[in-house]
Amino acid sequence: MTWYLVAAVLVGVGTVLARRRAVLGPHPVDGTDLDGARVGYLVGGPSRAVAAVLGGLRVDGAIAFTDGAVVRTGPAPRIWGTLGETVHAATTGKPGLTGLLRHPGPVYDELASTGADLMRRGWLVSGSTRSGVKMTALPMWALALVGAVMVIRAAATGRPFGWPLIATGAVFYAAVRLSRVPALTTHGSLALRQLTDANAHLHPDAGPSLRTYGAATAAVAVGLFGTTVLLPLDPGLARGIDELPYASPDPPRPAPDAPGRAAPRRGRGPSGGGPSCGGGPSCGGGCGGP
């Protein structure tokens, strides 16, 4: 039994070190040039990116939320590039924001492109890295299998197997944990935490005046802290974004290591490939690292 415990420690330490190297990221990242849509994508995936853009459009006066529907009230500011323009054009005025994230469509494509851009920058874990991280956990799975065989043999021969069972269970738990791949690289996660700290004045508890800060900063606020920051300005829109129906498939993370615009593929919803905070667009705070 002693050899098994020693092997578990050695393999576990080696796996952790290999995992850290794998998810570190290609280079340190800088979040000073990220717009609200990209910040939102990092925190909560495509749904939060759209929420951030809608928040910015509302502060700019380009849209309004009336009787449960989003309507265009002015041209879209050129703050988020094509994504802002496509989201603005997709506000059909239907109740509940129905159709805003329809697949296929320009919003879907632009969100996939945004995810691919963040992957190229080193914020998001690439597809090849994701596979590599899972491979690093294979020795732990092999050790768990060896432990399971030991327990079965001990039980079959009538020998005590309590401690082997506990040790095998611990190895199995470690293998499961080490097989999980974070959405953000280590560099990306660290930069996002720094970005969140630098914008603490935009947190809902600070009571920021989004009109004073302007559309671009308002989008960053929604991207970082969720639609709660919109409640003082437009409670209807804040709740309307949260109730955005996800019946149609929306873009998951971009295709592995896509050099350009990621190819759209079906998923369960816009938050389905997002960082660990997941959920809808109103979940708060930044995502954790590996």
Rank of each mutant, 00 (worst) to 15 (best):
R193G: 09
A219N: 07
S282E: 04
A206H: 15
A247I: 15
S131C: 14
A263N: 07
E85C: 04
V23R: 11
T32M: 01
S126Y: 05
R261W: 11
A238E: 08
P232G: 13
G162E: 07
G207W: 13
P281W: 02
R159W: 12
P251S: 07
S128F: 15
T186D: 08
D257S: 11
P106Y: 12
S282K: 04
A216N: 00
A90W: 05
A51W: 02
G99T: 06
R78W: 05
D242M: 11
G269V: 06
R20N: 15
G272I: 05
V39E: 00
T91E: 13
H187T: 08
T98S: 14
R48L: 01
G169W: 02
R102L: 14
G55T: 04
W80V: 05
L54M: 08
F161E: 13
M135D: 15
G278P: 01
S248C: 13
L230M: 13
A148E: 01
F225K: 06
I166P: 03
A116K: 10
A52Q: 03
L83T: 03
T86G: 09
G288D: 00
G74I: 04
G44T: 00
M150W: 03
A18Y: 13
G68V: 07
P245N: 15
D242S: 05
G115L: 02
V50D: 06
S276D: 04
M135Y: 11
D197V: 12
G285M: 01
H201C: 08
A37T: 01
L231N: 12
V220S: 08
D257W: 13
R211C: 09
T196F: 10
V151L: 06
P182C: 04
K94A: 14
V107T: 03
I63H: 12
H88L: 03
P249T: 14
P256Y: 09
E110Y: 07
P256D: 09
P259G: 14
V149H: 11
G272Y: 10
A7R: 03
D33Q: 03
E243P: 05
R20Y: 15
P264F: 05
A156G: 11
A89C: 12
A156E: 14
T32K: 02
G14L: 09
A89D: 14
M1H: 04
R78F: 06
R211M: 11
V176W: 00
A174Q: 01
C277F: 01
G56S: 08
V151M: 08
P251W: 09
I79S: 07
G272V: 10
S128H: 15
M150G: 01
L42G: 00
A263R: 14
P254M: 10
D117V: 09
T185L: 10
T92N: 15
S131Y: 11
G288N: 04
A37M: 02
R20S: 15
D197W: 06
P235C: 05
A62N: 12
G273Y: 01
P95A: 06
W141H: 05
G207S: 13
K134D: 12
L244R: 10
P270Q: 06
L83S: 05
R72K: 12
V53H: 12
A216F: 03
F172G: 03
G289C: 02
